[in-house]
Amino acid sequence: MSPTRTLTPYPLRPAAAAPEPAESRRVLLTTGSSDAHTWNLVYLQLLLEENGHSVLNLGPCVPEQLLVDTAQLTRPDLVVFSSVNGHGHLDGLRAARALRAERSTSDIPLVIGGLLGISPDGAEQRTAELLAAGFDQVHSDGTKPDVLLSYLAQLPATCTERAAA
């Protein structure tokens, strides 16, 4: 498949003027390589855009290499990994390790949320593993969107600044 086409962000923009936040961030929105769900991605894109951020939505079933390549190309301020198929912890581990293994993407803030396991069993261990693999935050299902928005708001510097530092 052609990677450029795959990168086409989903053209869903609010007609109303978006609020202009102090800092507009560039968010790379992704999911697990085995996760076919998209409503979560559609919702998050709308939410982030309404709050003045720009979003690149990779769509369903994102292979790790596509994620790493895209992150290298676009240098986002944040990678949001959203998964609801129960394999989020497995897919997320691989995604985080892939991103962290590359020098150029090892410092990009990375958060994960959704239904990450097939049962509530072992949630604590999953969180610990995901954090250890390189996620900066792990959010369980039911976390309010404000958490993501305020995390974005407090990100200390843009990616370019980080790269320069």
């Binding site: 869903l12 609010p14 409503w39 919702y43 969107p145």
Partner: peptide, 13 residues
């Protein structure tokens, strides 16, 4: 009927 917002989408879903 106006723009689809995250809120409207969420309500419909």
């Amino acid at each position: 009927s106006g723009a689809m917002t995250s809120n409207r989408l969420s309500l419909m879903l």
